[in-house]
Amino acid sequence: MWLVKLNSGYDMPMLGLGTWTQNNRTAAESVYFALKNGYRLIDTARYYGNEKGVGEGIRRAIAEGVVKREDVFITSKIMPGNYNNAAAAIDASLKDLGVAYLDLMLIHQPGSNDKAVYQAMEQGVKDGKLRSIGISNYYTKQQVDEVLSYATIIPAVIQNENHIYYQNTVLQNYVKQFGTVIECWYPFGGRGNTGENFGNKTIAEIAKKHGKTPAQIILRWQVQAGYVTVPGSANPNHIAENIKVFDFELSQDEMKKIAGLNRQRRYENW
């Protein structure tokens, strides 16, 4: 598993499991299966309503000796409905996940109380509850600069929609100077759009050449381009498939071809 050194000093796995749309039951199973299959990054959020399940899956893997707590990088997010009491939201996530600290906490999306939320996360770092902090769904230099104007701890991660048709390399290149890493949700375009991404002629040709699936080519491109990526799935076959991207390498020409697919076209508007 590849790791990236965050500006907080901690190492973050570059590929993990996303749990958006999963309930507690399916999250517990998929997280446990993912950890057994080599995953070490698990992504959830208060809004998902599955933190208890995610925690259950992690505890089961720990109890069976699959991993230790310090082996697992756990990310959660403070949802807009909790922005008026971010400190309590941090504690609620820790309680539901059943852990003493989170490896990464993000503001889920821009809201009306971002400064206070970010400052609550900074206090969480000082209190030992959070190791790294960041933001999600901030897409422009202007949005990032606003956070930087009041941040005393620079965001370690920005988690955004990112796939072959929306690469936003402008933002990635801008935040490199701060040591901030871009993390991708919807690496395959999200539900209803995977066919368009997997069926792309360039992706399909590269997949055939390497004897890999289109999903594996897209994930390999992302980690090779310096992104962290968290494909979501409750399907054991897909979970097992998605992590098998570290036994081959895309050529510079192939990386350029995939970069050329960028249309700056998002599928979502939040």
Rank of each mutant, 00 (worst) to 15 (best):
V170W: 03
Y118N: 03
R263E: 15
L106K: 01
T44H: 03
R265W: 12
I206G: 05
I239P: 00
I164C: 01
E241H: 10
Y186D: 15
N242F: 03
D253M: 10
Y227F: 14
G226R: 02
L102Y: 03
I217T: 13
F188K: 01
G128Y: 06
K244P: 04
A88C: 04
G81D: 11
N37E: 14
D11I: 06
Y138A: 07
N82M: 09
D145A: 04
T213K: 07
Q143R: 05
Y165D: 01
G134E: 11
I258F: 00
Y165P: 01
G232Y: 02
G124T: 11
S30F: 05
S149C: 13
I62A: 00
C184F: 11
E29S: 14
H163S: 10
S132N: 15
K201C: 06
I133T: 09
N160I: 05
Q109L: 12
A92E: 14
T44S: 13
D127A: 12
Y48I: 12
G124R: 05
K176H: 10
N162C: 13
Q142V: 13
N200G: 08
A120N: 12
R220G: 15
G189P: 03
R25T: 15
P110I: 15
L94I: 13
L148Y: 10
Y118W: 02
G16H: 02
K36Q: 15
S132T: 15
E183N: 04
A34K: 06
Q159M: 04
K244F: 04
L102D: 05
I153M: 12
G232C: 03
K5M: 11
N82L: 09
D71F: 00
P13A: 08
N193T: 10
L219H: 13
K201Y: 08
S149W: 11
A86V: 08
Q123W: 05
R131E: 09
A45C: 08
G199T: 13
Q216W: 12
F198R: 03
S8P: 14
P236N: 01
G124Q: 07
I239F: 00
L3I: 15
N197L: 11
L3F: 15
Y186V: 13
A34R: 06
V72L: 00
G260A: 07
E268T: 11
A92L: 09
M14C: 15
Q222T: 11
G49A: 04
V228A: 05
L102F: 09
V230Y: 03
V66Y: 01
W20H: 14
K256I: 13
D96H: 05
I243D: 06
E254V: 12
K256Q: 14
D96M: 06
G192M: 05
V144P: 00
R40D: 11
G226W: 04
V157G: 01
Y32L: 09
I203L: 11
R266Y: 12
E64I: 03
M79H: 06
Y39K: 09
I42R: 02
T26G: 03
S136V: 14
N200S: 05
V4Q: 05
L148W: 08
A259Q: 07
G128L: 08
M121P: 13
T75N: 00
Y267T: 10
Y39V: 12
A120K: 10
P80E: 10
N160S: 03
Q22E: 12
W185V: 12
G211T: 14
